[in-house]
């Protein structure tokens, strides 16, 4: 395309426009850098006071100025794990249904359905979780309730990513499998799944990142118990984002610093998961 570039009167305006677009694109890097730097700086007071205890202690008490986030880290990972166990099979099933089974006319409505699931606000899921799921169905506020709500919220995300990945399977591969007499399921196992394995792993990891960072719905249904590390899914617990949302209102300076330290930990965790996921997805795309 360089071949066609002409140097006319508006050469300077042309250059300026190019620089404006670069600045806009660079904003992404600037914002991410600022997030990391400004928040780490605000988290330093609590890190100085607590030292490594911040990450290894599960005692969290504003009254005693003792902040250990281990229990919340556990809660975040535990609820995210429950969410993944519930969401992954459903997402995969729906994605396979849309791409391999559904008749043509059904595909578009299915995509609409997934879009609508994805756009229901988190606070509405939370309200529904509190008043219907936990009170009406007697699940209470617990790790499990939070896990279920998170699963509902990440299923559409994983599904739409998985659908995109699966649709890149070459038609010739699938036709070859069917021509050899494979049933539909055998065709899926032999061509679709191996072809999209990498992308599917990436999709699941992006879902994991979402589940770990999801705040409001978890804050409403997880139960806000302090220091809870237990494998019992029916116990009330807490997760890092939920603590931030629930405690921010009445936090003093050091407490706020501790909550920002939670946010920094969460940021680091989700960045690592997303870096890995993005890398896997992009590598998958290049092979496709």
């Amino acid at each position: 395309m360089q071949l066609f570039e002409l140097r006319g009167r508006s050469h300077h305006a042309d250059k300026a426009f190019g620089w404006i677009t670069i600045a806009a694109a660079g904003l992404v890097l600037v914002i991410l850098g600022l997030v990391a730097a400004s928040m780490t700086q605000r988290a330093l007071p609590v890190l100085e006071k607590m030292g490594p205890d911040l990450f290894t202690s599960s005692k969290w008490s504003a009254a005693e100025d003792h902040y250990g986030l281990l229990a919340f880290l556990f809660g975040t990972l535990y609820t995210a794990a429950i969410a993944l166990v519930l969401a992954v099979p459903v997402s995969l099933g729906v994605a396979l249904f849309i791409t391999q089974v559904a008749p043509r006319w059904l595909k578009k409505p299915m995509v609409y359905l997934i879009d609508l699931c994805a756009v229901v606000p988190s606070v509405v899921w939370g309200l529904w979780g509190v008043l219907v799921l936990s009170q009406h169905f007697g699940l209470g506020r617990s790790f499990l309730t939070a896990g279920i709500i998170l699963a509902i919220m990440i299923t559409p995300i994983i599904t739409s990513l998985a659908r995109e990945v699966i649709e890149t399977t070459p038609l010739t591969d699938k036709e070859a499998a069917l021509a050899l007499g494979a049933t539909r399921w055998e065709m899926i196992c032999a061509t679709v799944l191996p072809h999209s394995k990498g992308g599917l792993v990436g999709a699941v990891m992006l879902g994991l990142g979402r589940a770990m960072g999801e705040t409001i719905a978890a804050a409403l249904v997880i139960g806000s118990a302090l220091g809870q590390i237990t494998a019992n899914p029916f116990a009330p617990g807490n997760s890092m984002p939920a603590v931030i949302a629930n405690e921010w209102g009445e936090a003093d300076d050091l407490h706020k610093s501790a909550l920002i330290a939670l946010a920094v930990t969460l940021f680091a965790l989700t960045i690592v998961v997303n870096l890995l996921a993005t890398w896997i997805v992009q590598r998958g795309r290049r092979h496709a």
Binding site: A25, G26, V28, L29, V35, E214, F267, T278
Partner: peptide, 28 residues
């Protein structure tokens, strides 16, 4: 390279929890 980095980080940025962005704006 710069474009590839931005594209990659933009995808990573979509996964930053919304509450982290909220606290970031609180600080800034």
């Amino acid at each position: 390279k710069f474009a590839r980095a931005v594209r990659f980080m933009a995808m990573v940025m979509t996964g930053v929890p919304s509450i982290v962005m909220g606290l970031f704006i609180y600080v800034m």
